[in-house]
Design a protein around this nucleic acid. Structure first.
Length: 281
DNA sequence: AATGTGTGCAACCGCCCATTT
DNA sequence: TAAATGGGCGGTTGCACACAT
């Protein structure tokens, strides 16, 4: 969408130097002005938009306010387990490419995802005394956190006697959706198994959980979630009916630590693993 | 009740790249 | 072709609120 028409001359009567620009939190009045202006003129050309709308804000500020807050399709509220799973998966592929990740979570902004990562994910890394970029923490995410999320998704689906959330995630991951066709969910269809540098390549990997697991959940299949081949207990079906809650991930932990060459410092801090799975309240 | 501390998130900053003049 | 401008991005900051002491 672009700014239409030429109602506002580019020859502004006030330069930014002489016009005192507002900063800080937006007021309700400013929000209304911005929304009204965009609804009738469209978005884009943010600097001139700010001038023409009579907002004493920078174009950047207007753009940010619109994209992150006022846009009608902005989705607010807690990040769902399905979204958490996607964020973990996509971040493992792309790193801090927040806007790229956000393209696959309709209604979520890059800012929101970035905030989620910094406040929640990095907090857990800190509790586990890992660096968020360390192999240890990435393995915790891949082999413990993501399976737990899948478990939660599955459980909530079963509890509600409806497959809606899982089906939604399955559709989302498989590209079977109706969101933005250009940049929406369908991109996830490109998800591939991890490369040869990953120890998980020797077996089915939850590194591709976002796609493979959703497909299997959708089909009601048991999930083949395997650990690195170096870890003895890899290759089992998950969740195994005989395993007590919380399931597979915890069982694998000592072997993961051995694999990492650690001596229990991770498990000593796993008291808060439950918190990995934030559920909507 | 007052104060301190931690947390979440909206907003800003600075850099970079693409487009326009 | 160079300079100016617009816009996108990741990183950072600061405020408001909740909770603890």
């Amino acid at each position: 969408m672009e700014v239409h028409g030429g109602a506002c001359s580019s020859a502004t009567p006030h330069s930014e130097e002489e016009m005192e620009l507002r900063r800080g939190p937006w007021t309700l009045e400013e929000d209304v002005v911005l929304m009204n202006y965009i609804s009738s003129h469209g978005e884009g050309r943010w600097n001139s938009l700010a001038r023409c709308a009579g907002l004493k804000r920078t174009g950047k500020s207007c753009r940010l306010r619109w994209l992150n807050y006022l846009r009608p399709d902005v989705r607010r509220g807690n990040i769902t387990p399905e979204e958490q799973l996607l964020i973990l998966e996509l971040h493992s592929r792309w790193g801090n490419r927040w806007s790229k990740i956000a393209q696959h979570l309709p209604g979520r902004t890059d800012n929101e995802i970035k905030n989620y990562w910094r406040t929640r994910v990095q907090k857990h890394a800190k509790h586990l005394q890992c660096d968020v970029d360390s192999k240890q923490f990435k393995d915790v995410m891949r082999y413990l956190w993501m399976p737990r999320l899948i478990e939660r998704i599955r459980a909530s689906s079963a509890n509600s006697n409806a497959t809606e959330s899982v089906a939604e995630y399955g559709n989302l991951a498989a590209g079977d959706h109706t969101f933005d066709a250009g940049t929406g969910w369908s991109g996830l269809g490109e998800i591939v198994k991890p490369g040869p540098e990953s120890p998980a390549t020797t077996v089915s990997s939850s590194g591709a959980a976002g796609y493979e697991v959703a497909e299997k959940l959708k089909a009601g299949e048991a999930i083949q979630l395997s650990l690195p081949a170096q870890i003895g207990c890899g290759g089992g079906l998950w969740p195994e009916p005989s395993l007590p809650s919380p399931g597979y991930g915890y069982q694998a932990l000592p072997e993961l630590e051995q694999y990492w060459g650690l001596g229990g410092e991770i498990s000593d801090n796993l008291w808060n693993l439950e918190d990995f799975c934030y559920l909507q309240q």
